Structure formats: C-alpha cells, structure tokens
Simulated assay, not measured.
Amino acid sequence: MTALFNFQSLLLVLLLTICTSTYAHYVFPGIMDRNKDNYLVGPFWKCARVGERLSPYVGIACVVMAVVEFVG
C-alpha cells in the first residue's frame, strides 16, 4: 500500500516534507526565496513557512508520530 492510500503514512510523509523543507530553507535561504513562485520549488517554500511558523506544533506532531510508529 502506498503512502497516498494510508492516512498514517500520508501524515508521516507530510511531516517529513515540512521538516526537510524547513531545514533546506535554513541552509539555503536564497535559493528557496528566489524561486518561491516556481511551480517546482513553490510547494517546498510553503512547507518551509509552515515549519518555521508552527514549529512547536510540528515538533509535537513528530513526537506523536514517533510514538505511534513505535507502539503500533
């Protein structure tokens, strides 16, 4: 079953995308800011914004998903 059809896996992929995009924006801010209107880099720029502005909630969600993966 792919991650698109399993809700738990979809949430995990979304959280990992947000975390990775936030880290990439922290390391290479110029590349992502310059191409934020690009159809290829734009969604990752938006994920980086979500990760920067909602970082406590994203961190809590990552811990919850880790516990769910460990228990389940």
Rank of each mutant, 00 (worst) to 15 (best):
F44P: 00
L54Q: 12
L12P: 01
P43C: 06
V68L: 14
R49V: 12
P29Y: 00
L15H: 03
V27I: 14
V27D: 04
T20H: 05
Q8I: 14
D33I: 04
G72D: 09
I60L: 15
G42V: 03
L12C: 09
T22K: 06
F44T: 05
L4E: 11
D37Y: 10
L11R: 12
W45P: 00
L10V: 01
D33M: 04
A3T: 05
G42M: 06
A66S: 13
V71M: 09
T22R: 09
E52C: 07
N38M: 07
T22H: 03
G30R: 10
F28S: 07
F7Q: 12
M1F: 12
P56T: 09
V27E: 08
S9V: 07
V41M: 15
N6G: 04
L14D: 00
M1D: 05
A61K: 10
I31H: 09
H25S: 10
R34T: 14
E69G: 07
A24W: 03
L40E: 00
V71I: 15
Y57T: 06
L14H: 00
N38E: 13
C19I: 13
V64N: 02
V71S: 05
I60N: 03
G59M: 09
W45N: 06
M1A: 08
V41I: 15
V67F: 15
R53K: 14
A3M: 02
L54W: 07
Y26W: 10
A48P: 05
R49M: 08
M32Q: 07
C19Y: 04
G30E: 14
E52H: 06
C62A: 09
L14R: 01
A24K: 05
T22M: 06
F70K: 10
P43S: 01
D33A: 08
A3L: 04
R49I: 11
L40Q: 02
Y57V: 07
G51A: 05
K36Q: 13
H25P: 00
L40Y: 10
I18N: 00
T2G: 04
C19S: 15
C19K: 09
P43M: 00
Q8A: 15
